[in-house]
């Protein structure tokens, strides 16, 4: 994430403003990256660079709630699943309150947990990594574009 932030900040990757995401988007601060990693402003820089309608959850940044899938909770297996889903209610409510259609999250634990939560609480959200979005919104130099696009 630090790397993506630096790429975009330093112009190594350019964002095409016309391609920016239009729908409401929120960002999940993973515990390991925000509270324990100190990278919450970088995430917001990226979000604002990529999305037109970025809505923060409350509370956020280093005070954000854990998604409920951390600490190895997901791979612990099915005997913990019910409790994991119930505990995720806080996160589900937080997401619903933002009204976002997409949740961006850089952590794989959160990613899986949020997809499970979306199904469990019928949130109707799409969960995405930064790296999934960047290729949709960037402005590539010509030599990196696929051949058919160059032809146009």
């Amino acid at each position: 994430m630090q790397a993506f932030y630096e790429y975009i900040r330093d112009g190594r990757i350019k964002i095409d403003p016309a391609k920016k995401m239009k729908e409401p988007v929120t960002y999940q601060d993973p515990c390991n990256i925000s509270r324990s990693g100190g990278l919450w402003e970088e995430a917001r820089y990226l979000m604002n660079a990529m999305c037109e309608d970025f809505r923060d959850m409350a509370p956020n940044r280093e005070y954000n709630h854990c998604c409920g899938g951390g600490g190895g909770y997901i791979p612990m297996g099915p005997q913990f699943r019910k409790r994991r889903m119930q505990s995720g209610k806080v996160k589900a409510d937080q997401i619903r309150e933002t009204g976002a259609k997409v949740v961006v999250v850089p952590c794989h634990n959160c990613f899986d947990q949020l997809r499970d939560l979306s199904a469990e609480y019928d949130l109707g959200i799409q969960v995405m990594h930064f790296k999934t979005i960047i290729p949709h919104v960037w402005d590539l130099p010509d030599h990196l574009k696929p051949p058919n696009e160059e032809a146009n």
């Binding site: 925000s34 509270r35 324990s36 990693g37 100190g38 280093e62």
Partner: peptide, 9 residues
């Protein structure tokens, strides 16, 4: 621990 290391208040 939280501040110096991670910038978290």
């Amino acid at each position: 621990e939280m501040g110096q290391r991670r910038g978290a208040a």
